[in-house]
């Protein structure tokens, strides 16, 4: 219990700090930033992580880091931002190998495409820089799973609470939940180029949830939906501040929080013995 709390507090603190920093730096007013942060953090997956495995928090943090670093790199290219994108894509493999691979496949394209005018060799160089660390992380995981019999399934977003009634019938529920929550914001922000990298990360997360569903992998929808919070914040922070965007983002965060709690209670076994 204590270990869970400690393990959950660190990513929770990082997420809270990240939310406020991203939003304030993007020029959003304190009340909007604070309100959005509170709603984003009050999702079922985030709260439940304090009492169970803190996996959903780490996953949310990883996805947020990928989205934020990609947005920062798209805004201005420098060596540090390249390192951040590469290392966050590598780190996300540890939380979600499938999502990490999909993100690694999608994201550099959005960034490196801008380099295409500088010639294929330089574009290849940028791809190599962005993909080297995630590919190495994937290879290490593959080696560990083969040679050291590491259970990769345990690395997937495990249940946010022990004993959830997850079965194969609900394998598409995470993807559907994310679509329901994120698509309105995606549509609204698509026209802003600066928000595209974060949107691509959101698409990658949805795509990986779909792939998992197609592959018959059962994932905890509550844990996976927790990633919608940082995505919402980063998407908003990387688009020009406007009241319309703020309303959409708040709506997304509230919707996400509400839906996550509903989903949690739907899958929760009764009585709540594990609490």
């Amino acid at each position: 219990m204590t270990a869970h709390v400690v393990a959950a507090l660190l990513p929770a603190a990082l997420l809270a700090g990240g939310f406020l920093t991203w939003l304030r730096r993007a020029g959003h007013a304190w009340p909007v930033a604070a309100m959005l942060s509170v709603f984003a953090l009050s999702q079922a997956g985030m709260i439940a992580a304090v009492t169970g495995p803190g996996h959903s928090l780490w996953l949310a943090l990883g996805v947020g880091a990928v989205a934020a670093s990609a947005s920062a790199l798209a805004e201005r290219e420098d060596a540090r931002r390249i390192i951040l994108v590469g290392s966050s894509l590598a780190a996300i493999q540890l939380c979600d190998p499938m999502g990490g691979l999909v993100a690694a496949g999608l994201l550099p394209a959005t960034i490196a495409a801008r380099q295409a005018r500088e010639g294929p060799h330089k574009t290849a160089g940028l791809y190599a820089l962005l993909l080297f660390l995630p590919v190495m992380a994937a290879l290490v995981l593959l080696y560990l799973s083969r040679a050291q019999h590491l259970d990769l399934a345990r690395l997937l977003a495990g249940p946010s609470l022990p004993g959830l009634r997850l079965d194969v019938r609900w394998r598409f529920s995470p993807a559907l939940g994310l679509v329901a929550v994120l698509v309105p914001l995606l549509i609204e922000l698509w026209r802003w180029r600066s928000a595209r990298p974060a949107l691509f990360v959101a698409i990658a997360v949805i795509a990986s949830a779909l792939f998992d569903g197609l592959a018959g992998v059962i994932r905890d929808p509550v844990a996976l939906m927790a990633v919608a919070a940082p995505l919402t914040v980063v998407m908003l922070a990387s688009s020009p501040p406007s009241p319309v965007h703020d309303r959409y983002a708040l709506m997304t965060a509230v919707l996400c929080a509400g839906l996550s709690w509903l989903v949690l209670f739907w899958f929760l076994p009764l009585p709540i013995a594990s609490f």
Binding site: L126, A128, F132
Partner: peptide, 23 residues
């Protein structure tokens, strides 16, 4: 792995990205 990555990153600031895959 990290040293290889740094070798690839080295030419970045000079804009010599065509040398990066050599890393």
């Amino acid at each position: 792995v990290l040293f290889t990555y740094f070798a690839m990153l080295g030419p970045y600031r000079r804009g010599w990205l065509d040398l990066t895959p050599q890393g």
